[in-house]
Design a protein around this nucleic acid. Structure first.
Lengths: 145, 145
DNA sequence: TTGACTGCAAATTGTTTGCATCATG
DNA sequence: CATGATGCAAACAATTTGCAGTCAA
């Protein structure tokens, strides 16, 4: 079983940045690897912490600038929950976030499950839902008892 | 026309604060009146501006503290859109916000219209949607051409 | 009189930016 | 060696807080 999966994925993303006129750097690679490790869904702050465990010199602003470059290349997107920092995730995963206001945990729902809902809204209000950029607030099963 | 002391909506809200151990003050009254004028849906910054037009001494922190007191008494709530400040509105108005990421305008949808959607989510994921505290991001009819 | 409310300034949090320097391509 | 990337500090925007004085009940 070849263990090239992770390396390749990071490489692919660095290539993508390269194609868009960017450069491959160690910081960027480390940031991308962290994103892959956690499968997206992480704040800039958390990325910085993890990256700095191995490369203490990497600055938070580099994290933000890299996230911005990744966004511009369409690799990642971010969601906002009620308060606090944005959470970054890969655009490839097409899902919606259910954010529990009590335990602050996030549950993912495949975007396809919301198909009837989003099309109903579009029909009624002409509003095209961007299901990659909205979090639904509420209370999860465990917390709403 | 007889002079009758009319109980205003602002009075009712001040009473509500009073019942919860708070005090009626001029600043609070002015802030509540602004909220009523615009029927909710306003940022703290905008409230401060409007209040300060008539009472320049009222500080922004008083606005925030009053909004917090109103929230604690259940009179108002706030929503977050993708970026920027929170928007405050009365809890009585039971609706959902459709936020256009392009023109940044907000369209309101009566919560009842989302009934099937929210109950479907609750059935499938045990997640109880707080439809007073989520904004749906996307693109409105005019902007999605 | 008591303690809630206020103004003011300063702290916080999350994110962005200016600038000099570094290093990839 | 040109230009994009980086570290650092400082600017930012939105909101919160500490403190001492004020005022409603």
């Amino acid at each position: 079983m070849p263990k090239v999966t992770k390396k390749t994925a990071a490489d692919d993303i660095l290539d993508r940045l390269r194609e868009d006129g960017g450069r491959r750097t160690a910081s960027r690679q480390a940031i991308i690897e962290v994103l892959l490790e956690v499968d997206g869904h992480i704040t800039a702050e958390e990325i910085a912490e993890r990256v700095q465990q191995r490369f203490p010199s990497v600055n938070k602003s580099t994290v933000y600038r890299t996230l911005s470059a990744l966004h511009d290349s369409g690799v990642i997107a971010h969601v906002h929950f009620g308060h606090g920092s944005a959470t970054y995730h890969f655009t490839a995963e097409d899902h919606v976030h259910l954010f529990c206001e009590t335990c602050e945990e996030v549950q993912e729902v495949p975007a396809s499950k919301l198909g009837e809902f989003t099309s109903a809204i579009e029909r009624a209000y002409g509003f095209r839902v961007d299901h990659r950029h909205f979090a639904i607030m509420g209370r999860c099963g465990r917390c709403s008892t």
